[in-house]
C-alpha cells in the first residue's frame, strides 16, 4: 500500500517535470524573445535589448538556458517577469487567489448541479421533463464556454444590467458584508459560464451511470427488502453511480483551468488565465513557464484528490491498493 502511494507521487512529479520541460522547449522554439522590438516601447533600442539579453542569459544556447531554468526552479526561484517588472512568483501569487476562487466555485457548481441533475435524469428516465433537460445538457455540452460567457455578458450583464461585466469587485465599492455580496455578484456569471459546460458533462456521465445502476441486481435486492424508493436511490444507487463521475473528476480541473483562460479574459477577471495570455503576448517566458508549472501542479493535485474520492466510493479498490 505504502509503496503504491510512493509510486503514484513519483509518477505525478515526473508528469509535472515533463510538462514544464515541454513547455520550456516549445516556447523557445517560437521566434522572438522578451527584448524583441515593441511598437509601444519608445525606450527600445537594439543596444539596450542586446545588453538585457546578456544580463538575463538569453544569449546562451537553449540547452544551457534549460539547465539554468531547472536548477533555479528547484531552488524555488521562478525568475523575473519582464513584462510586469516583478518576480514571477509574486505575479503568480497575486493572480492565483482570483483564479482559485473562480475555478473552485465553477467546479463546485459543475459537480453539485451535474450530479444532482444527472442522478435525477437517470433515475426517472422517461418523463418529458427528463428528456427536455437532457436536451439542455446536450446543448451545453456542445457549446464552448466562451459562447456561454458571451451570451451571459450580452444578456444579463450588458442588456439587462443585472450583473457587473468586469472585475472581481466594484472599484471603491462597499466593504464588509456588502463587500462580500458585491464579490459574489461579480463571481456569479464567470463561474456559471465556466461551470455549466462541465456540469453538462458531469450530468451526462452521472445519468448514464445511474441508468445502469438502476437496473443492477443489488438495487433490485434493496427494493425486495422493502426500502423506500428515495433510500434505494441515495444509499444504493447514487454512490455506485458516482464512480464513473469521480474517475473523470480529476480531468475536470484541467478543463476548468483551460476554460478559465478564456472566461477570465472576457470578464476581465484578474486571474492566472489573463496573466498567462498577457505573458505569452509579451513573450515573457519565465512568467509563462511559471504559470504552466502552477497549472500542472494543480492538475496533479486534482487528480490525486479525485483518486482518493474514488477509493472512498469503491472499497474494492482500497483493498487492492
Amino acid at each position: 500500500m505504502r509503496g503504491n502511494q510512493l509510486r503514484r507521487i513519483g509518477d505525478a512529479a515526473l508528469l509535472v517535470a515533463l510538462v514544464v520541460a515541454t513547455c520550456f522547449i516549445l516556447i523557445r522554439l517560437a521566434p522572438g524573445d522578451p527584448f524583441y522590438p515593441r511598437l509601444d516601447d519608445p525606450a527600445w533600442t537594439p543596444e539596450r535589448a542586446a545588453t538585457q539579453r546578456v544580463a538575463f542569459g538569453y544569449d546562451k544556447p537553449i540547452r544551457i538556458q534549460f539547465v539554468y531554468y531547472v536548477s533555479r526552479t528547484f531552488r524555488g526561484d521562478l525568475g523575473w517577469s519582464h513584462s510586469r517588472n516583478q518576480p514571477v512568483a509574486e505575479a503568480l501569487a497575486s493572480a492565483l487567489p482570483a483564479t482559485g476562487l473562480l475555478v473552485v466555485t465553477a467546479l463546485g457548481i459543475a459537480f453539485a448541479v451535474g450530479i444532482l441533475v444527472g442522478a435525477w435524469q437517470g433515475w426517472r428516465r422517461d418523463s418529458p421533463l427528463v428528456r427536455a433537460s437532457d436536451r439542455v445538457s446536450l446543448v451545453l455540452l456542445s457549446v464552448p464556454e466562451f459562447l456561454i460567457a458571451v451570451f451571459a455578458l450580452m444578456g444579463p450583464a450588458l442588456a439587462w444590467r443585472w450583473f457587473p461585466t468586469a472585475g472581481m469587485r466594484t472599484p471603491y465599492g462597499p466593504e464588509g458584508v456588502l463587500g462580500l455580496l458585491d464579490r459574489l455578484h461579480h463571481l456569479a456569471l464567470p463561474a456559471l459560464a465556466l461551470g455549466l459546460p462541465i456540469a453538462a458533462v458531469v450530468a451526462r456521465l452521472q445519468a448514464s451511470a445511474m441508468r445502469e445502476v438502476r437496473d443492477a441486481e443489488f438495487v433490485r435486492a434493496a427494493r425486495s427488502r422493502g426500502l423506500l424508493d428515495g433510500l434505494v436511490l441515495r444509499r444504493h444507487a447514487l454512490r455506485n453511480a458516482l464512480i464513473p463521475v469521480l474517475t473523470y473528476a480529476g480531468l475536470q480541473l484541467s478543463t476548468a483551468l483551460s476554460g478559465a483562460v478564456i472566461v477570465e479574459r472576457l470578464f476581465s477577471w484578474p486571474g492566472m488565465g489573463r496573466l498567462i495570455v498577457d505573458a505569452v503576448g509579451a513573450r515573457d517566458y519565465p512568467l509563462v513557464a511559471g504559470g504552466v508549472l502552477v497549472a500542472a501542479l494543480c492538475t496533479v493535485v486534482g487528480t490525486m484528490l479525485a483518486d482518493l474520492a474514488l477509493r472512498w466510493a469503491t472499497p474494492r479498490l482500497r483493498a487492492r491498493a
Partner: peptide
Amino acid sequence: RGARIALVMQEPMLALNPA
C-alpha cells in the same frame, strides 16, 4: 416486500452492493 415476502436472487455477487 422484505417483511412478509422476501427474495433471494441468483448471483450473490451482483445482488450485494459493492460499496
